[in-house]
Design a binder for these strands. Structure first.
Lengths: 194, 194, 194, 194
DNA sequence: AATGAATGAGACTTCATTCAT
DNA sequence: TATGAATGAAGTCTCATTCAT
């Protein structure tokens, strides 16, 4: 891949993100995608075997960006609750500011594409080897402050409310302000804390 | 014009539920649907104007069935926590035993079909006139036991974890046993209680 | 055919005339036809083998009605020009007052249905044996007042202008008043007279 | 989007003209059209948005060709009658030699496609800007030789016989020879002359 | 390597006709 | 005999993918 083609690949993925988020996978013809990416239809097929592979690659991309966004430094002396709330607020901010990415992910996990992919992967596995911020938190010293429970339930209590609420945000039904974001983050903490 | 065979209409809706849940709206051709329902393609159009209307009708049906399932008698002297946990367990049981319905609803609310429908409607409005079980609970005397917060956040904390976890259940990644169901229900209660 | 069924046959033909004139043969489904005729779809097939036969039967009917309308008594001492103009005005009046019939006939003769039918039949053959009014005129004593020419050309000069103009009338582009009707009839006479 | 192959577009229009003339708009499936034009079905839709647009485009094409055919030089010192007869003979010759075009136009003006188009446009408006040959004639110095009458009636008397007769020609019922063509043209002139 | 015209399988839908009641 | 629900062939159009340039 020459640098030029890497650029083109990104143009395609960017256009795809927009189009998929706006119209859904099935209302985003390759021709339209090509036009928005300012490449020829045929060119897309040099970078991706077919539409499915493009969608999976885009998932990869969006997922990685999300993980990277959540990696952030935290003051060491912070309390577990403060730490968790901090991570949560980061997450909400990121997703609220990247509605296309959120819409794409929701669509992906709700379609035949995302079934075989573990849902928790969304937030519990870091980019290429590194641990995700949440993964570090849940497996680190804060563990003692959490009520002992099945990991699946823990993730559901931690992330379920966010995804639920953000759907309404991204459909324009709600706008989240800081007080509400805090309400949510603290609610989640109360759900999982010891 | 107004067909009399409620039976055939149901056959079609049943086949549609399966097919939509298994393959998604866009990978469920009318021809396949007809075959599974054991009717001719043209017959579907006697009962539903087009595919969209069929999808909306199915939503109606599934939604009503869900609401009906949640209506249950509760001992009057029960505590708010016990009441909430009871409702929650009911909900989880129902959805876990009806994975097609759950998948269909998730898909519906995540598609252009369901956008104009408030997400909370899922659980906060009862079937034709009656109040839903959750609606009664949240607007009833238990209100005093809840932490004051924005309604949207409240619903997110109450229902977000369930929908999150049930996706994994319906993809076959997890099987919920009673202890875990209790963990979840109690976590939710802790998130919203005073 | 009992009287009752003759009635029903007429209801069907009447509905067909309306529907065909308004929407064209190909935008007039049998179901709609049945509804407008207040009979069941299946019943239509007791009276007509299929849609084509219905169309041909309707043509027959409309054609006969037209011929009958043109049969009219004329004072014996009238001049050939007066006679011709009289017949012509009759014809125009009838067709202008029966726009559905006119539209149907135009459509019929312009479709694969009417190709094998001689166009002149329209006006040159009377109902069941009788001679049509125009036939009588052209073959009667007035013949001497006509310029000798091929029959086809004669009919074209006589009837072409009427059908041409009535199309605009039936599309609502023109409304014919008596002066114009006279202009037309006299123009036709000038075209064919000795 | 803007295809370069004018050739292919013409192939499609040629095939369409044949098919529409032979079978009518509604008995000319896109698949058959594609086969006759030796292109894939999908290709037609690169050149025309849908079947309707194809029909309108074909009308455009046929209309222009007809107008162009009628433009011809006339000796300046010719009499109005000779001029009119000359134009008429031209018209008849052209249409008799292009029966598909004639059938297509008749069908077009007799269908919902052509209703909003004034019937006279057929011959009274020239190709893109230029005046049609008949338009020039009727509005030129010959006007003084015509009997004063409503324009609609004038056109009907001039063009009605031609379209009437040519239907039979194009159904193969008659073959026009020069004497008959002259009879017709002169009859028309007698109908409209002063 | 890039382009985009061409392809044709397949989706949705309509509607003439049949047939069980 | 009348009914109208059921049928499925056939029509229009879309769009992922290919391939000649």
């Amino acid at each position: 891949m020459t640098p030029t083609s890497q650029q083109k690949r990104n143009d395609i993925l960017d256009a795809a993100l927009e189009l998929f988020a706006e119209h859904g996978f099935h209302n985003a013809p390759m021709a339209q995608l090509a036009k928005r990416a300012k490449v020829a239809v045929g060119s897309i097929y040099r970078y991706f075997k077919d539409k499915d592979e493009l969608i999976h690659a885009l998932h990869q991309e969006v997922d990685t960006a999300l993980q990277n966004a959540l990696v952030s430094e935290v003051a060491p002396a912070i309390s577990p609750q403060q730490h968790f709330v901090h991570l949560m607020i980061n997450l909400i901010h990121y997703l609220q500011e990247h509605p296309y990415e959120f819409k794409f992910l929701e669509q992906y996990y709700n379609s035949p594409f995302g079934i075989e992919i573990k849902r928790e992967k969304l937030l519990m596995s870091g980019p290429s080897g590194r641990q995700s911020a949440f993964e570090q938190f849940f497996s680190g010293p804060a563990k003692k402050s959490l009520k002992p429970m099945s990991a699946h339930v823990l993730y559901a209590l931690a992330f379920g409310p966010v995804t639920f609420l953000l759907r309404d945000v991204s459909s324009g039904l709600v706008k989240l302000d800081e007080p509400r974001i805090n309400e949510l983050a603290e609610g989640c903490w109360n759900a999982i804390k010891q």
